[in-house]
Amino acid sequence: MDDRKEIKYKLCIGCVFCVMLVLLYQQFRVVHIYFDDYAYYSLSYARSFNGTKNYTILQLLEFMKAHYMECNGRLLYFFVWLLLFWLGGLPLVQLSAAVIMVGVLWVLWKAASLKMEGYQKVLAAISVCALYWSLDIVFLRQGIYWFAAFFLYVMPVGVLVLAALLYFEFLGGERNTAGNKMTILLLIFAAGWSQEQQAAVTTVFAFLLMLHAIWVKKEKCCAAILYVIPAILALLIVIMSPGIQARLESADNGIGLIENIGANARQVVYLLGTASSWRINIFIFLSIMLISICDLKYTKSKVCKGFDAIQIVINGCLIYGYVLKQTAVEIFIATGDQTKVIIIGTIIALSIM
């Protein structure tokens, strides 16, 4: 490709993400303190810690210890969040959240465009940023425009995708060095040391990397298993916290850790099947249909052709349901029948996978 064209495309991509940063900062600068943000900003979330507004770094570390012993093991990203607040107050947290969100989108774009060239990369950047604005307010207010949730749930996703990106970018060649592998292992550990569901996802991801390294990269088992160790270590730090068991035992619902994870997974699936996610779902359905149509044209395997045909029919029906009634499950919600909503959400989740 011509060097001038390459520079032009890079400038276009840079402009897309710069505009996104400005827009996101305008959003985050009006996000203030909600729910348990108060307890964290005053270091009073842990029962044995009295709390203070003007704390020192030592007091912050003491709070983290008390949080681990009495609440849960979600320390790493809470520490980053509270450290930012200690350094620059709410304005720095707001700016940092905008920068981190753009960073997550950039990593997603980079991973999606690894094999693209020229204008395709520009279109991919525009698509990734546009998809962000298709998220419903239900997701935004509960997962992004609430700092405790943003730093705990959104930021680790970017770290995990970055680990995957580096793994495939450093696959073979001169960049497949011990230093780069150590960076990937640290990112896997950082992604897992977040919260229970993310730790579980990171562990599964690490096992998949191990299998890929053995079968595709032809690494020895003793070398490939290194991908799993930091994920399991992070998972144990999170779920073995003395505070998490105490909280589960004292919870009103009286359910255990595994049941709690299952209940949260059910809630996520339920949200996928409700009206709040109709924009992103239609995009997903259309994408799966187009991928299946293209695969149907080029694949020679009869099994793959049959699977593609099933995906086209299923996603076509889901699109028809959304177009017909905005979401087919509104009827089920109105009648209080959550079972069908869960079924539709499960179909969506499986289709995404």
Rank of each mutant, 00 (worst) to 15 (best):
C71H: 05
I347K: 04
S194D: 06
A111L: 08
I258N: 07
L248T: 11
Y322E: 15
Y320W: 06
P230Y: 07
A309W: 00
G316Y: 00
A98W: 00
V201L: 11
N72L: 07
T299E: 14
I314G: 03
Q311E: 10
T339R: 03
E174H: 04
P156N: 10
F147C: 08
Y38G: 12
I126T: 06
A149N: 11
T52N: 09
I225Q: 09
L272T: 14
E259F: 01
S250E: 10
I314N: 06
K5H: 09
A46L: 11
G243M: 08
A309P: 00
V30W: 03
C317D: 00
V80Q: 01
M20W: 05
L11T: 15
T202A: 09
R141H: 13
L248V: 09
M289N: 06
E259S: 13
G243E: 08
Y45S: 14
K217T: 08
L90I: 13
V30C: 03
L90D: 04
F151D: 02
P242F: 10
L83M: 12
Y25C: 11
G88S: 07
E117S: 02
W215A: 15
Y55V: 07
G243N: 04
Y77T: 15
Y68M: 14
S276Y: 05
M210W: 08
A275Y: 02
D37V: 10
I126W: 02
K110E: 14
A231H: 01
K181I: 06
C15R: 00
S301C: 10
K305M: 11
I261R: 02
Y45F: 13
V204S: 07
I291P: 00
W193D: 11
G143Q: 11
L185P: 04
V102I: 15
M69Q: 14
L257N: 05
L271G: 15
L271F: 13
L131K: 08
M182I: 15
R247Y: 06
M289L: 04
F139E: 14
A223W: 02
W193K: 09
A149R: 02
Q311P: 00
A111V: 06
M69T: 11
G158C: 07
A349G: 12
F285M: 13
I255F: 06
L135S: 10
G316V: 02
V19H: 01
Q267E: 15
E169D: 12
I258M: 06
P91W: 04
L162A: 15
K305Q: 15
V99W: 01
G262T: 05
D308W: 01
F49D: 11
N176T: 03
G118Q: 00
F28P: 05
Y38H: 13
L114F: 01
L152P: 01
F283T: 15
A231M: 05
L105Q: 12
L186W: 07
Y77P: 08
S351N: 12
G172D: 06
G273M: 05
